[in-house]
Design a protein around this nucleic acid. Structure first.
Length: 579
RNA sequence: CGGGGUGUAGCUCAGCCUGGUAGAGCACACGGUUUGGGGCCGUGGGGUCCCCGGUUCGAAUCCGGGCACCCCGACCA
């Protein structure tokens, strides 16, 4: 491809809106241009990268035995009502009406539609198992799009769905998808770790996320160096510090003026936060919920939401607190107004003599004891794991890292089979629900993470499987006959070898061309110039290391191939290091 | 939705406080020069100063109200 005929434009300075390295480079190298919040146009250069990412995904999914399909993005709302997910997704679901005023949704994911399709095919256990996948646009009216291609309102997702007769079959399908994902991310040059995850709005049982660890990530991951345990913070278990032991003592009311936070209370009384009971108020699906947890711990809102099987959960606003008759800063479950659901974390049940609020401004109660003084409607693990907490699997300590969720695999089980009525007849002729799994990868996110993981101060460094061109040929003094002849010969040999180079034939200075080559990130650069020819050929430069050498023009193709192969090895090594 | 920030040329920004002909660098067009790391000289084109309203003889600038975009928290690939 001749650059003068290719629609690319690079920017010397990144637009001020871009802060993360990938966002800046995406805009500077001209891969995408923003249209509106969470919406981007892909340029010819950017789309080539996207297509290569797609190719990696397609090859590895095909290799795993999955079958590609294409499902409508536009879907009748009834389908979403049937699964109950029109409410689960709520405002995230884009809705629109057709000319007959019938309601549709723009698919944020495709479990319902693929269930519909699968149900048309599945009659007998002999029809199972199989896995379907597609690479298609999804729509989500996200609360806050961000980070360039990290969080979009319209994005391309590879979503796969497995259908098995039983849970053992699902385990095998899940494992096949898991292995395919590892190959996909390795080839894309994205180091990932698999972490235990919450299944969120998708529903289902086991679930793991593939995380690319980076400071610019939006998820928090807890990890134990010692045993390798890793989990999303919203899911993570941990060993709670033990309670302070003691025999129950009599309840006692004390004045604690101005001590409305755990820190103030502990300081005022000269005790550890661990000896107090923290009260947190939530509004859950419109109803007030009182949460009690030991003072040294925080509430994990995802765990709480799951415990309550709630659709909507938010900290209670000041107005709602007053309306519910709660006393912020001095509340406890002892003497709480009626009609409020009380949820307790496991940590308060076996901790004796906790200091808790007296439900009266400026006063607390000493020596409150669960069972003797109060009881919760629900007792559950609703505590948030934090850096420094004990690992749930070994004696190690958890640390936190930030990460971007690149992919997610779920064991759905029979949830959708039940709601969408996907059943089969087993060997005995009994009707049973199909056991499903689902698996997703965000394509734009892969591009963003690939750049995050593969760049330097000069620009992008594409992994060989992702690069939009096989080589970047810079031509200097193209008007000299020997240069023009060499370029023509080079282009012919590349074409014969089936390689696709980007040729910078622009009338620009050498400096601009070299800078642009570094920014655009094609792994090998060839320079055709009078100087190189004098030295016996063309200059070959490896983008990642900057090393250069002169090779005869006739050997250029082989030199490019060698570097691309070696770069594949380098990408693999980087992955091993990080995982 | 809450908190913070920003809207002036394609991009980065100055001008605003203290109202009076809208600017610079980069990019773009043309001419010349140069040709191994964003080179140099000259000429030129390009603006609803985010929008609406108010104050004023006069508003990019002051006041009010909107909107958009970015960042931090609740949602997810």
């Amino acid at each position: 491809m001749r650059m003068t005929r290719f629609v690319v434009k690079t920017l010397r300075e990144a637009p001020s809106e871009a802060e993360t390295p990938s966002h800046r480079l995406l805009l500077r190298a001209g891969l995408v241009v923003p249209l509106a919040a969470g919406l981007y146009c892909f340029t010819p250069f950017g789309w080539r990268v996207a297509r290569r990412m797609e190719a990696i995904i397609r090859e590895e999914m095909d290799r795993s035995g999955a079958l590609e399909v294409h499902l409508p993005a536009l879907q009748p709302i009834e389908l979403w009502q049937q699964s109950g997910r029109d409410r689960a997704f709520g405002p995230v679901l884009f809705r629109l009406q057709d000319r007959r005023e019938r309601w549709f949704a723009l698919g944020p994911t495709h479990e319902e539609v693929v269930s519909f399709l699968a149900a048309r095919h599945i009659q007998s256990y002999r029809d199972l198992p199989f896995t379907l996948y597609q690479i298609q646009t999804k729509f989500r009216d996200e609360i806050r799009p961000r980070g360039g291609l990290i969080r979009l309102r319209e994005f391309i997702m590879m979503d796969a769905y497995s259908f098995d007769a039983d849970w053992e079959g699902l385990d095998r399908s899940y494992e096949a998808a898991f292995q395919a994902y590892l190959r996909i991310f390795a080839r894309a040059g994205i180091p990932v770790i698999a972490v235990e995850a919450d299944s969120g709005a998708i529903g289902g049982k086991d679930s793991q996320e593939f995380m690319y660890l980076t400071e610019v990530g939006e998820d928090t991951i807890l990890r134990c160096e010692r045993c390798g345990y890793a989990a999303n913070a919203e899911k993570a278990d941990f060993r709670r510090p033990p309670p302070i032991p003691g025999e129950p003592r009599p309840l006692e009311k004390v004045a604690t003026p101005g001590a409305s936070t755990i820190a103030e209370l502990a300081a005022f009384l000269g005790i550890e936060p661990r000896a107090t009971c923290k009260a947190v108020f939530y509004e859950v699906d419109g109803r007030p919920v009182f949460v009690a947890i030991r003072g040294d711990l925080d509430v994990n809102e995802v765990k709480l939401k799951n415990t309550l099987k709630a659709k909507d959960l938010a900290p209670m606003g000041e107005e709602a607190v007053r309306r519910a008759g709660l006393v912020a800063g001095y509340a406890s479950a002892i003497g709480l107004p009626a009609g409020i659901l009380v949820v307790a974390d496991e940590s308060v049940v076996d901790a004796p003599n906790l200091v808790a609020g007296a439900n009266e401004p400026g006063f607390h109660l000493l020596n409150t004891n669960y069972g003797r003084d109060w009881r919760a409607d629900i007792v559950a693990d609703i505590a948030l794991a934090r850096a420094g907490d004990g690992c749930p699997r070994c004696e190690g300590t958890l640390e936190t890292r930030r990460g971007i969720e690149m992919g997610h695999v779920f064991k759905l089980g029979t949830v959708y089979a039940e709601s969408m009525d996907v059943r089969y007849l087993d060997e005995r002729g009994d009707q049973r629900p199909v056991v499903m799994g689902c698996y997703g990868i965000g394509l734009e996110r892969m591009i963003a993470a690939c750049i995050e993981a593969n760049h330097d101060e000069d620009g992008i460094i594409w992994p060989p499987d992702v690069t939009p061109f096989d080589a970047h040929i810079v031509v200097l003094n193209a008007d000299r006959p020997e240069v023009a002849d060499t370029l023509a010969a080079l282009e012919a040999s590349f074409a014969a070898a089936g390689l696709d180079p980007l040729v910078d034939d622009r009338d620009e200075s050498a400096g601009i061309k070299f800078k642009d080559a570094d920014l655009l990130g094609i792994p090998v650069r060839l320079t055709v110039s009078p100087r190189a020819l004098q030295q016996g050929g063309v200059e070959v430069r490896r983008r990642r290391t900057g090393e250069t050498r002169i090779v005869p023009a006739a050997e250029a193709v082989q030199a490019v191939r060698t570097i691309l192969e070696e770069e594949s090895g380098a990408v693999g090594a980087a992955r091993t290091l990080a995982s």
